[in-house]
Design a protein around this nucleic acid. Structure first.
Lengths: 133, 133
DNA sequence: TCCATAGTTCGTATATCGTGAACTACGGCA
DNA sequence: TGCCGTAGTTCACGATATACGAACTATGGA
């Protein structure tokens, strides 16, 4: 099991952050983690919306968040303690994380009926259907 | 040639925006377009950093930006006039776009030596190398 | 030592991305 | 009208990334 890699705060990129948070599952995980004032285990965040994320996918998602510099993970016995690196990122990119989290909140508040996919825009689905027939 | 699709502002998603701007080429295009106070053709934005984007890739990038709701494109004779939809998005997700553009500026300002790839984090490269040997 | 728990890694099917080649749409110009 | 040039799109395909089940690793008890 390879050791957990955390980028130095100066190696954190905007692209990495945006990419990590452009996935609805990761965004959900991160938002909930950021809302907590304490560490959370992976399984504690296994529910995203109405579905349960498989363990292997969850692990990958945490890796992406970790390597984007958004999250710090520390082994604690048999489980893993995850915390956000909000403060560090806030210093490097002021206002970025709050703006994204706020936008996510607004979106959830504004659109209660959860459209099935995301990450693929409505437009893409339309195109896909058009192609299919 | 299928007509240009622009999502209604209410169909614009945070995920779509973050995904679109998580690519350094698209981020660069969008940042420059946002800095302009007039429309720009695609070819006018063909230079990203130090390299020239192939036409086909450029077209795809604009499609992603367009379908994410970030950009409005209008055919004008033989060329295309692109403008940002900043104002609309600002209304739907206040502060999001400015925060991202600002973060991008800070990153460029802070790290003049342009690391070759992005979007794939430093960590990923490390892992890849580790696997290769 | 054996088991349960929490998480990781591997393998593979699937989806997305980047790009050259071919194509379409429009605007001159003869 | 037909032909050409320019701007951008679509297609095809190889490279890359993603999701997830199965197998594995580490840790903490009993």
């Amino acid at each position: 099991m390879r050791p957990l890699f955390h980028p130095a705060i100066d190696d954190v990129t905007v692209e990495g952050i945006l990419h990590a948070l452009s996935d609805p599952v990761r965004a959900s995980i991160y938002a909930r983690l950021a809302g907590l004032d304490c560490a959370a285990t992976c399984t504690a965040l296994q529910q995203a919306g109405d579905r349960t994320i498989p363990k292997s996918s969850l692990s990958q998602h945490f890796r992406v968040l970790r390597e984007a510099g958004l999250v710090r993970s520390e082994r604690a016995g048999v489980e893993m303690h995850n915390t956000t690196r909000c403060a560090e990122i806030e210093q490097r990119f002021p206002g970025l994380i709050p703006a994204i989290l706020n936008a996510h909140r607004m979106q959830i508040a504004g659109a209660p009926p959860p459209r099935p996919p995301a990450r693929r825009t409505a437009a893409a689905s339309v195109r896909k259907k058009a192609k299919a027939r």
